Simulated scan of single mutants.
Amino acid sequence: MTITTETSTAALSPAAAEALARLERALLPLDVIRAVTRYEVAALRYDELAARPAASLSSAEFDAIRLSQETMTQAFAVLATAGQTSLLAPLEVATSYRYAAAHCRELAEAADFDGCLAAQDEMRMCRCQLEAAGRLDLIGGAA
């Protein structure tokens, strides 16, 4: 007589994935949670400023770029020490999403609709990855 056990490999619903991600983040050490948050905020500020032409930036904004880079370096060091650098993967996907969205806007303005469709495909792929990770909050989605 053989006993078999079946394991379900069905994907979690978006709500379940989000709840699981929140639970996993809640169980992390406080210094790791703070490092992820600091890294995410600094990276968003850096991306915002780096996307603008350098000639349009004030000296305070150049300082903000430098401070953002320093903050990301410090936070990454904390995560590396804790062996938790994988927690930054959703942020990388969110950055790809934002770049694809900006590229799509540029292509639409240039009437390159085929190119825009390719950028939208990239955005959909990123959104699916963030939804699976429960991190739609990184692109302004449901948190």
Rank of each mutant, 00 (worst) to 15 (best):
residue 16 A to S: 11
residue 17 A to F: 09
residue 19 A to W: 06
residue 19 A to T: 06
residue 20 L to N: 12
residue 20 L to R: 12
residue 21 A to T: 00
residue 23 L to R: 15
residue 23 L to Q: 15
residue 24 E to T: 12
residue 26 A to L: 04
residue 27 L to E: 02
residue 27 L to T: 08
residue 28 L to G: 11
residue 29 P to I: 04
residue 29 P to L: 04
residue 30 L to C: 07
residue 30 L to R: 11
residue 31 D to A: 04
residue 31 D to P: 00
residue 35 A to I: 08
residue 37 T to E: 01
residue 37 T to F: 05
residue 38 R to Y: 05
residue 39 Y to R: 02
residue 40 E to P: 07
residue 40 E to S: 10
residue 41 V to T: 03
residue 43 A to F: 02
residue 45 R to Q: 02
residue 45 R to W: 07
residue 46 Y to I: 07
residue 46 Y to G: 03
residue 47 D to A: 12
residue 50 A to K: 11
residue 51 A to Y: 02
residue 53 P to S: 01
residue 53 P to C: 06
residue 53 P to I: 08
residue 53 P to F: 06
residue 53 P to G: 05
residue 54 A to D: 13
residue 54 A to P: 06
residue 54 A to H: 07
residue 57 L to W: 01
residue 58 S to R: 02
residue 58 S to M: 01
residue 58 S to K: 09
residue 59 S to V: 12
residue 60 A to H: 13
residue 62 F to I: 03
residue 63 D to I: 11
residue 63 D to Q: 10
residue 63 D to L: 11
residue 64 A to R: 00
residue 65 I to K: 13
residue 66 R to P: 07
residue 67 L to V: 00
residue 68 S to V: 01
residue 69 Q to F: 10
residue 69 Q to N: 10
residue 69 Q to V: 05
residue 70 E to W: 11
residue 71 T to I: 06
residue 71 T to A: 15
residue 72 M to I: 00
residue 72 M to A: 00
residue 72 M to H: 00
residue 73 T to W: 05
residue 74 Q to F: 01
residue 75 A to M: 03
residue 77 A to K: 12
residue 78 V to M: 07
residue 78 V to A: 04
residue 79 L to R: 05
residue 79 L to C: 09
residue 79 L to T: 04
residue 79 L to G: 09
residue 79 L to I: 10
residue 80 A to T: 14
residue 81 T to A: 14
residue 82 A to E: 05
residue 82 A to T: 04
residue 82 A to R: 12
residue 83 G to T: 08
residue 83 G to A: 04
residue 84 Q to W: 02
residue 84 Q to R: 15
residue 85 T to D: 06
residue 85 T to Y: 01
residue 86 S to C: 06
residue 86 S to T: 10
residue 87 L to T: 06
residue 88 L to P: 11
residue 88 L to V: 04
residue 90 P to M: 03
residue 90 P to H: 05
residue 91 L to C: 01
residue 92 E to T: 06
residue 92 E to N: 10
residue 93 V to F: 14
residue 93 V to Q: 11
residue 93 V to W: 15
residue 94 A to H: 00
residue 95 T to P: 03
residue 100 A to L: 04
residue 100 A to Q: 02
residue 101 A to F: 15
residue 101 A to P: 01
residue 101 A to C: 10
residue 102 A to T: 05
residue 102 A to Y: 03
residue 103 H to G: 00
residue 103 H to T: 08
residue 104 C to W: 13
residue 108 A to E: 15
residue 110 A to M: 14
residue 110 A to I: 08
residue 112 D to H: 10
residue 112 D to W: 13
residue 112 D to P: 02
residue 113 F to P: 09
residue 113 F to V: 09
residue 113 F to L: 14
residue 114 D to W: 14
residue 114 D to A: 13
residue 115 G to Q: 13
residue 116 C to W: 07
residue 119 A to G: 00
residue 122 E to G: 02
residue 124 R to V: 14
residue 125 M to T: 09
residue 126 C to A: 15
residue 126 C to F: 02
residue 127 R to E: 09
residue 127 R to A: 02
residue 127 R to G: 00
residue 127 R to H: 07
residue 128 C to R: 09
residue 129 Q to R: 15
residue 130 L to S: 03
residue 130 L to R: 07
residue 132 A to L: 09
residue 132 A to G: 06
residue 133 A to K: 02
residue 133 A to F: 08
